[in-house]
Design a protein around this nucleic acid. Sequence first.
DNA 1: CGAGACGATGTCACTTGATGACATCACCGA
DNA 2: TCGGTGATGTCATCAAGTGACATCGTCTCG
Lengths: 172, 172
Amino acid sequence: MQLYVERGFEQTTVAEIAARAGVTARTFFRHFADKREVLFAGSEQLQQGLVEALESAPASATPLEAVVAALDAGAEFLGRHHAHARRRHSVIMANPELYERELIKMATLSEALAEGLRRRGVPEPDATLTAETGIVVVRVAFGTWVSRPEPTDLAATMRETLARMAAVTSGG
Amino acid sequence: MQLYVERGFEQTTVAEIAARAGVTARTFFRHFADKREVLFAGSEQLQQGLVEALESAPASATPLEAVVAALDAGAEFLGRHHAHARRRHSVIMANPELYERELIKMATLSEALAEGLRRRGVPEPDATLTAETGIVVVRVAFGTWVSRPEPTDLAATMRETLARMAAVTSGG
DNA sequence: CGAGACGATGTCACTTGATGACATCACCGA
DNA sequence: TCGGTGATGTCATCAAGTGACATCGTCTCG
C-alpha cells in the first residue's frame, strides 16, 4: 500500500515491494499469486462471512431477506477502518488492472451468494439475480460510504441503496 | 480464437498468434493493447450503440424505460452469430484473466449508461443503480441465451430476465 | 541429545508479456 | 522523381511469473 500510494501501482515493481518487506521477489510470489493480489488478501473472509450470514437466515426468509442478512454482515466487515478503506479504494480506482481484480472478486462473491440461495431452494434465474442485486448494492453503497470524508453508518447506507434499487427496478 | 480454442488461452503465446496471422509480435501489440484484448474488439461499438439508444429514448421515458431501449439495441447487437458467441463465451469463462477483462468492459458500459442517464436528468444514486440493473440483465440474459444450443430470441430473454429482476428486488 | 522431516526462504535460470527506439518499405500526392 | 506518411520489422530491454534446487531453522521422535 505504501508503495502503491507513493508512486502508483504500475510504477512500483515487485522487487521493490519485496525489498521493503525485507524478502525476495520469489518469496513475494509465494505469498501472493500476483502483484495485484496484495490488495485483496482477506476477501475470502468477507465471502465466508457473507455466506454464513446467508445460511443462518431463517428458513422462512425470502431470498431478498436472506441477502439483506448477508449485507448486514458485509457492512460489519467492510464498515471498519474508514481511513484505510479510503486509501485502498482510491488506489484501486486509479488502476484498471486493480479494478479488474476487484470486479472479479465481487463476481466470485456474487456466485457464492447465488450458490447459497440455491441451497436454500431458490430456483434460477432468481438466485443469480438476487445475488447480483446484493452485490450491486454492496458496490454502490460502499462507493458512496467511502466517498464521504468522515466515517458513517455503512449498514444504513446499504439499506437506503437497496431501497432505491427496488424503487428503480420497478419503474419508479 | 482458433488458438485459444485449440490449446487454451494461457498456453498460447503472442508469438504464435502473430505467426498465424503472418505478422510479428511487435505488430500484434500495435493492434491490441494486450493479449486479452483480441477477444474484445468491437466492444466500443456495443457501448456506442447502447448509449445512442438510451439517448434517443423519448424524454418522457422513465430511467428504466430508457435502459430497456438500450437493452433492445444491445440484444440486436449481441443476438447475432450465436455459434460464434458460444465459442467466445466458453473461452472467456474458462479463463479468469479473460473474465476479468469481460467484467471491466461491462463496468465501463455501465458507467457509460449511468452517464447517459445523468444527462437525462436522472439523479444519483438512481442513475448508477438503473444502469447497473441494466448490465446485470444483459449479463444474465446473455448467459442463459448462450447456454442454449440453438439460437433463440435474445431480446425476449432480456425482457423476461428484467421482469424476474423486478420481482426479486421487490421481495417476491 | 542427535537424526531427520518439514516449512519458509533464497538463488538461479528461463519463459513470456510488453514497450521504446530506430530502420524499412510501400504507397500517395505534389 | 522527391519527399512524406503509415504500417511493419528488428533489436534491446524490462518486468512479471515460474520451476528446480539449495539452505537454514525449528520441531519431533527415538
